[in-house]
Write a protein that binds this DNA or RNA. Sequence first.
DNA 1: CCGACCTTGTTCTCTTGTTCACAAAGTGCC
DNA 2: GGCACTTTGTGAACAAGAGAACAAGGTCGG
Lengths: 230, 230
Amino acid sequence: MERQRRIPEATVARLPVYLRTLLEVQTDGVTTISSERLAELAGVNAAKVRKDLSYLGSFGTRGVGYDVDHLLVQMSRELGLTRDWPVAIVGVGNLGAALANYGGFGDRGFPVAALIDADPTKVGTTFGGHTIRHLDDLPALVDELGIAIGIIATPAAGAQEVADRLVAAGVTSILNFAPAVVTVPAQATLRKVDLALELQVLSFYGQRDSIGSSLREELGVTAEAKNSAV
Amino acid sequence: MERQRRIPEATVARLPVYLRTLLEVQTDGVTTISSERLAELAGVNAAKVRKDLSYLGSFGTRGVGYDVDHLLVQMSRELGLTRDWPVAIVGVGNLGAALANYGGFGDRGFPVAALIDADPTKVGTTFGGHTIRHLDDLPALVDELGIAIGIIATPAAGAQEVADRLVAAGVTSILNFAPAVVTVPAQATLRKVDLALELQVLSFYGQRDSIGSSLREELGVTAEAKNSAV
DNA sequence: CCGACCTTGTTCTCTTGTTCACAAAGTGCC
DNA sequence: GGCACTTTGTGAACAAGAGAACAAGGTCGG
Ligand SMILES: NC(=O)c1ccc[n+]([C@@H]2O[C@H](COP(=O)([O-])OP(=O)(O)OC[C@H]3O[C@@H](n4cnc5c(N)ncnc54)[C@H](O)[C@@H]3O)[C@@H](O)[C@H]2O)c1
Ligand SMILES: NC(=O)c1ccc[n+]([C@@H]2O[C@H](COP(=O)([O-])OP(=O)(O)OC[C@H]3O[C@@H](n4cnc5c(N)ncnc54)[C@H](O)[C@@H]3O)[C@@H](O)[C@H]2O)c1
């Protein structure tokens, strides 16, 4: 039985949800879980769960379900979570500072390894246990600390330049919070988090509702978020 | 010529990007734009732009392009941006505080109208010009201030309860930052922003790359983010 | 007024993703 | 050991979305 490669993008985006769900049931002492139950907890369709998991290999036992521990190991391996991915936060302002303070990333294998800013009055100061470094130090920091992921938390105007510099320094995974279209070469991966966009999408559907349209209800639009990748 | 209803979800998620792009070129004095140019600036395919815009109606002029001002008006109307959408932030911690401090929302028609927390030591204190209110006050706040959107910035454990309370109080648009699966009834809309998920997806693709696989290059995976709706 | 040129709007095809439905495979009772 | 029951893994049908291609419609120079 040949291992199936090329995991669909939609599946990749759901694996973290399954992972989190499995970690939760694991702490409850659950050792085996059916696709039905996992689907319920993860807010998706059971057939989808089975198909998604089948991309990892055939780990289930028919008539029984999936072994939680085993699934967690396979899933972590597939997602690349068997190693740490040091993160650099670029732009230590309002948002960057909040992210730097947040402990939830290091726990999960994404330690904040560097804080970077372009403002000379911020560079050199210490924040949350890190000395803020200048953007020019980026290549050195990548070498020293093995930065694998860059988070852009600068104003929109600077986002593309920061992305270019990150890629030039060898950081090929980028998460962009700035409300700007940023492009990177094909060998890099860029994902974005755009709050204004989210609010505007909510506004769109909210307006539909308040107009009294029952369109979406008729369609049975589902309860769980439908974000594409978020 | 019948107006085409039922705008695809994928299109709805791109309209805010076009909107932002159009606002930018508008300030540069541009009055007309072709689908080709808009596509380039928005980081998408030109055919997609034309198809997306055609859902709003036929506003372009063949041989010329689209009138920027007109397009902005139509798009704003469609997205429901002709009115304000007061936002309540639930959970004024690390993240909630950063969001509350951020001025970028009010500018765009999403004023932060209320800050809500469950912690008795925080309730009653003032933050960023708002007195923090208790979760129990939610129904009253919705009545008084016309809260239209709720942002969940509490720990994961409280997220579902907060969502339930928001819906019960009449808030049908919710943006969830907590790493938890939250479900809402069909008449409500929920979107999520999940940073851990984003990082794990980056880790997946980062691992693929560092293994030396040229899979994605061969596939010509594109430069712009592929987030589904974000 | 006409013809060369440009850009939209839309149709068609291809790809990706979702869901159903069911045979295959395993468990555990009797 | 056999049989009833459960749950997986996947084939096939269906739905949504992306992109190429092109006819229709409009501009503008002459
Ligand atoms: N704060 C929020 O809650 C929030 C919410 C949504 C989106 N955003 C977006 O996140 C980004 C950051 O927001 P913020 O509120 O933290 O802004 P901010 O102004 O508080 O901080 C920006 C920081 O980036 C630094 N910076 C500017 N240009 C830089 C460059 N080229 N290289 C390195 N550093 C640079 C600045 O010195 C500053 O420290 C913005 O694009 C904003 O639109 C923020
Ligand atoms: N801080 C970040 O940068 C960051 C990044 C990604 C995700 N998140 C997520 O965002 C959420 C908030 O993170 P944080 O760092 O601000 O946490 P935090 O602990 O700093 O703040 C949480 C706040 O929510 C309040 N709260 C708790 N339960 C509540 C309830 N039932 N109703 C109302 N308020 C309640 C608490 O009193 C506290 O003020 C978490 O789920 C976290 O995982 C945070």
